[in-house]
């Protein structure tokens, strides 16, 4: 088994020069590469915050066998980056021939996974990205393939929800959960990027980016880059970040709740139409309302529970294709009944 992984120009040593070459190529097209791609970890050691999986992969790079892997966790925690970095280190120059990357943009039906998973000597790692969008028959077809081909092929499944992967598959893989990144790790990364990109920023920008990202490093970097680009070299301000991330200004939410407290249906309707005319997303409004309602000291626990229940119902309907205005109005009516009564 070691021999199979040891063929070709391998090892971390060989990975070094090749990744150097890659970055040289990237430097030519530097202006066009988004920071997310530019600062994707090149080696496993660079992966932030996921010690468990890094430890296992490091062992693999030193020569131990690689198990079938299943990575799961919320978006932007480095799942795809980790396996790509590991594969690059393992195979060095041979990376392109040895790794097959499949994802939801390739039609992941049974027919496509089967022939590709067949013993093809040139492939040694098959990365199935977004595996949770694979159909059940496709997953079932993978079961036997994984065992039969275990001599020549390793699978790495990457997904957001482990519950969408069928049991027989999960039991064939070693599972790794990717945790949302901690605040200080995020801040650290973002400050490094800012320094190397020469972005000037106002105090509190990094904190704002971290807060709106919710532990999603990709989102944090994208919003940082977007706000830097919008400013085009000037100092980035907190308001830019909030604008780019689509956060609804606090005063609009407070106005809405004020209208609810005043028990005026017309007022609520008016505020809501302003909110939507400004182009704010109903889902964002809902999630911010949730925070505000929970923190409201004037509401009894029972009212809070009732409002949150309605919130859940409306959110569900919204995702099911319901109209934004009607659903928000319904939610606000419930809030109005409770807030108005409390006052």
């Amino acid at each position: 088994m070691h021999a199979f992984l040891k063929t070709g120009k391998l090892g971390a040593g060989a990975g070094g020069p090749s990744s150097g070459e890659g970055s040289k190529k990237a430097a030519v097209k530097k202006a066009l590469v988004p920071w997310v791609e530019k600062y994707r970890p090149k080696t496993v050691e660079e992966v932030a915050y996921q010690e468990e999986v890094v430890a296992v992969l490091r062992k693999t790079l030193e020569g131990a066998d690689l198990p079938n892997l299943l990575f799961y966790g919320p978006p932007g925690t480095g799942k795809t980056s980790t396996i790509l970095a590991a594969a690059r280190q393992l195979f060095g120059d041979m990376f392109r021939q040895r790794v097959l990357e499949l994802n939801a943009s390739d039609s992941t039906t049974v027919s496509s996974t089967r022939p590709d998973g067949r013993p093809c000597p040139s492939f040694k790692i098959v990365i199935l990205d977004e595996a949770d969008s694979m159909t059940r028959p496709a997953q079932a077809a993978l079961r036997r393939t994984m065992e039969v081909q275990s001599r020549s092929t390793r699978f790495c499944l990457v997904c957001n929800y482990v519950t969408r992967i069928i049991e027989p598959l999960t039991s064939r893989c070693s599972k790794f959960r990717f945790r949302p990144l901690a605040q200080d790790v995020l801040e650290d990364r973002l400050t490094t990027i800012c320094r190397s990109e020469g972005v000037k920023f106002e105090e509190g920008v990094v904190a704002a980016v971290v807060e709106t990202s919710g532990g999603d490093l990709r989102r944090a970097i994208t919003s940082l880059q977007s706000s830097a680009r919008l400013r085009g070299g000037d100092v980035v301000r907190v308001s830019d970040v909030l604008d780019v991330t689509g956060v609804v200004p606090d005063e609009l939410i407070t106005h809405l709740l004020d209208a609810c407290s005043a028990n005026s249906y017309e007022g609520v309707k008016e505020r809501l139409s302003v909110l939507l005319a400004e182009g704010h997303a109903a889902s964002q409004v809902m999630s911010q309302l949730h925070d505000v309602v929970l923190a409201n000291p004037h509401l009894s626990d029972l009212s809070k529970a009732a409002i949150c229940e309605k919130l859940a119902v409306c959110e569900h309907r919204l995702l099911g294709g319901g109209d934004e205005f009607l659903q928000l109005l319904d939610l606000s009516c419930t809030a109005m009944q409770h807030l108005g009564r409390g006052a």
């Binding site: 977007s226 689509g246 934004e324």
Partner: peptide, 14 residues
């Protein structure tokens, strides 16, 4: 943007 999945939102400049 309510009906656009977060994964796409995080890849775009809004």
């Amino acid at each position: 943007t309510s009906k656009v999945i977060p994964a796409i939102r995080s890849r775009c400049l809004g």
